[in-house]
Design a protein around this nucleic acid. Structure first.
Lengths: 340, 340
DNA sequence: TTGTACGCGTTATCAC
DNA sequence: GTGATAACGCGTACAA
């Protein structure tokens, strides 16, 4: 696997490496014929400039890195497709890594990408990530970093989000309007901003409608299907069923749904369900799940455009937080039976 | 964003770069105290050797590349997790790229990874990929390449597969045993090996049971949910419903299922359904979908181990094809109602 | 035990 | 319009 280098081409053509280089970098100071001839033979020999060497020299690589917590759920993959769309068009390669919701892996990934001299990074923090000192240092040294969804207040970077508070509020209000009284919230880890915001939306919707939020009605659950299953099983075992549950995300809602179905309980009827961060899954399951949809594709595109802008206007940088609009897709899982 | 280099550390410590280098590469020819002291200050300064420069010098990078067609469906993400598990443990970084089912992007991705001097690659071909000349050249030059699932006969590399023919055969036979007579097959593009194998399994299962395969009963559909929807709509419109459908994969089966449900048809009852390449989706939808499960995680691990072996035993290489076992998970969508 | 010098594949800056 | 050379950051053979 010998890579053909600029020297090989130079030797073959009996000219100097700089001439070859010029041919590829399309400067004016080269005769058109020479250029064409060089390009032709280079192509024939299968030569192309080695980007690593170029990166080493130029201290930038035309590559950007993306680190996401997972891609079991379709959410992050869909965001990444949006990212790639933008960068592909602009001549960048996108390197993707996943932290598997681990802080250690996340940091390793970030450092690996840094070492590959990516020109910038797009990052969504892992569940475990509390300490953002390293990222703070990167940012303070001017490294272009854009965060989305799983962001941190401590970092002064571009951010792309949806208004978790607002949409959690609407989702809860929707359940209230349907006439449900005893509404529980399956929440995510308190350390995550979006998790906290969604919880606050839940609480404030109750407040607006002068409803109490009981002590036991907010249950820290987690983010995966298994977490939803576990908590639902507990509730059934304790015979402490709510009318309705607003879950921090779709997987926990789906976990709850599966346990409810297995126990012969009706959705809605016995328990209504609303999720968050809709993926195509929500429409496929039975009953179809009411859920807040995030514009995954758009999140990716927006983050990419912000990073691109930062890359190209190196000097001026004012951290910007873009809040994209979500949407509450009402489906069967949260209907009031007496109405339908 | 000035990267700290070996020179910075050397200057600070008033010694030569080679001493620093030695400290990091842990040779015998350095005093332990010197080494410790260097490592300490280097660490304090935030220095770590630049892997790009190292790669350029050593012509290898301790990185491996993965290119998959897509990651909307959970199949490839699950495989990738298996891959990462192995390589992480062995000190390799994994760079992931997706071709978006496009031959052009796939080739670009492969070249980009090659240019990053990845030590090897794991690849699953895109739908469009017919021409494998470039990959053939890589292989003939000794570049370590492992294929999985979407493979090509023309390439003499390690391969990881499941026996598509066998499991399609079993899946079809299952429908026959349930008493279904008029069974259709939603097939994938004929150019794909797995697609062809599954189709042949479908045909031969009929042959074994002395059943005819009508001309119209094999329908080239595609691989995505939308494809299944489209073909199902056509069948309903033409009033040409089969008893049962064996679909080339889960998304097409799910597409068919959604259209059937929308039209008020029963699954099973009016039409039974069997899918292939099960992901966790199959259990979540309603009715639960009978499907052939592939050991996604294991596919990834196996491909990774084969590549690792090839990387470490450079000399001897005999292309190996590992056929992993699948499993037919029988669920509600293919039951015979009179039996249940 | 440590330092010097070269090469990995490029591009930019000088000469010519 | 073209060629020689330094530099990017590192590892290592060789000299000291």
């Amino acid at each position: 696997m010998k890579h053909i280098t600029i020297k090989d081409v130079a030797k073959r053509l009996n000219c100097s490496v700089s001439t070859i280089s010029r041919a590829f970098n399309d400067k004016y100071d080269i005769r058109k014929e020479t250029r064409d001839m060089i390009l032709a033979t280079a192509n024939e020999m299968g030569y192309s400039p080695n980007p690593m060497a170029k990166s080493l020299l130029k201290q930038c690589s035309n590559q950007i890195g993306v680190v996401v917590p997972e891609f079991i759920n379709p959410f992050f993959p869909e965001v990444i497709i949006g990212i790639q769309e933008v960068f592909h068009k602009n001549g960048y390669q996108v390197l993707i890594m996943q932290s598997n919701e681990s802080y250690i892996h996340e940091l390793e990934n970030v450092k690996a990408l840094e070492n590959n001299m990516v020109d910038g990074m797009i990052l969504s923090l892992s569940l475990e990530t509390k300490n953002v000192e390293y990222y703070k240092k990167m940012v303070s040294q001017g490294f272009p970093l854009v965060l989305f969804n799983r962001v941190s207040n401590e970092l002064e970077t571009h951010k792309v989000l949806i208004d978790d508070y607002k949409w959690a509020f609407f989702a809860t209000e929707h359940l209230i309007y349907q006439g449900y009284k005893k509404i529980f919230h399956f929440s995510g880890p308190d350390g995550l901003m979006f998790s906290k915001s969604r919880k606050n939306g839940f609480i404030d919707a109750h407040r607006k409608h002068k409803l109490m939020v009981d002590n036991g009605s907010i249950i820290e659950t987690g983010l995966m299907i298994g977490d939803g299953e576990r908590e639902m099983e507990k509730l059934i075992k304790n015979n402490d069923l709510p009318d309705a549950i607003f879950a921090v995300n779709d997987p926990t809602a789906i976990g709850a749904m599966m346990v409810l179905k297995k126990s012969g309980l009706k959705i809605p009827g016995d328990v209504a369900l609303v999720g968050f961060t809709e993926t195509h899954l929500a429409q496929l399951i039975d009953p179809p799940l009411t859920s807040v949809a995030q514009p995954t594709h758009e999140i990716g595109r927006t983050a990419a455009l912000l990073l691109l802008d930062q890359l190209e206007n190196k000097g001026i940088f004012i951290p910007q937080t873009v809040v994209l609009n979500g949407r509450l897709n009402v489906r069967e899982s949260s209907m009031k039976l007496s109405n339908g």
